[in-house]
Design a protein around this nucleic acid. Structure first.
Lengths: 195, 195
DNA sequence: ACCTGAACACCGTTCAAGT
DNA sequence: ACCTGAACACCGTTCAAGT
């Protein structure tokens, strides 16, 4: 006697994403997710290995969304079949990427933290993160040249994630214009990398 | 009938610190701490409000230790009563601070993550963190001038904590010389801030 | 004055039993 | 084939009862 499906992986993922943002990682419990999709907690294990796997799923989908935004509106590789990229104005592109990342962090702080948390809670593979940051690596290469591209990209991502992490932690609550400090960092780093 | 004290706040703090480093935040349970100090879990509540407070204690003591190291070997204010500081070679001092921070992170990664995690798990007040980073703010002022000191200090701390966070997360596992990338960042940022 | 066992409210997870 | 209640092993935390 088959039983009808009362929920779906998509619904579970959506519920997990909402709960993470609303109540933090601690609020993302199997019982809360189950309640949100109208099922009992044990049923979740039909679609998801365990809580860790569900959190990894939430992190992965957040990273997908972020990567899409980073690629959006970006100069694309020549459609004529050539493998050369036409990156125009790398400094402007760097600024766009940085602001896109920061906007995502403001919009979905808990998801951002999950993705960029130093630690293994997100369950994201490093390789996946690196693939998502390809746009930044390209800008770094355009700015610093192929030899220094890796060091430059690391410097840029380190600064950006560090800055946003501090901002989310409330480290900038005490005075000063945070937007200005972010612009300051982009400008100075861009110049430093290019030099 | 008074009962003899079978443990102490110091022992509890030490046990918490050890457990955090050995088993991560999830391993820092009241039962594990109690077991380590030779007592039952409920007894801990005589010395500590709850688990969160204990974690905050661990974070605070780690920050104390880090601050000590950052101040160690640093040029001090003139002992003649003047209020002018004699910071010699700000670039070298910046490098020393950055390497001290990174060495601490390598030595006590879990404690480092707890202190610098974006979020409120550490229970640290922002003001306390800012006080601990005073040495860096001084270097930033020496390099960038008083007007830009705050922006410069934020750029530096953002980069350093971002870099180390990525390193601890294993983001640099794939090729490249991490030490060189760190040195690259110090050099370029120092120059960028000073310009 | 501190320590303890017992209890409570929560977790995540497994599994036999239902449909 | 999916869903469920019951059960288990763990948490943090409270509290009356011991010494």
């Amino acid at each position: 006697m088959p039983a009808p499906e009362r929920t779906s992986l998509e619904a579970i993922l959506a519920a997990g994403t909402e709960l993470l943002e609303a109540d933090g990682p601690a609020g993302l419990t199997m019982q809360a997710v189950a309640g949100r999709v109208g099922v009992r907690a044990p049923s979740l294990y039909k679609r998801v290995r365990n809580r860790r796997a569900l959190i990894a799923l939430v992190a992965a989908s957040a990273l997908d969304e972020l990567e899409m935004r980073l690629r959006e509106g970006r100069p694309v590789a020549g459609s004529g079949g050539g493998d050369e990229e036409t990156v125009i104005e790398p400094i402007a592109e760097l600024a766009r990427l940085a602001h896109t990342l920061r906007a995502f962090a403001h919009e979905r702080p808990a998801a951002y933290r999950l993705v960029f948390a130093p630690g293994e809670e997100s369950g994201l593979e490093v390789e996946r993160l690196r693939a998502a940051s390809a746009p930044l690596i390209e800008v770094a290469a355009a700015l610093a040249g192929p030899d220094r591209a890796l060091d430059a990209a690391r410097t840029l991502t380190a600064w950006a994630t560090g800055f946003i992490g501090m901002e989310l932690a409330g480290a900038f609550r005490l005075g000063g214009d945070v937007d200005r400090a972010f612009a300051f960092g982009i400008e100075r780093l861009g110049a430093a990398i290019a030099s």
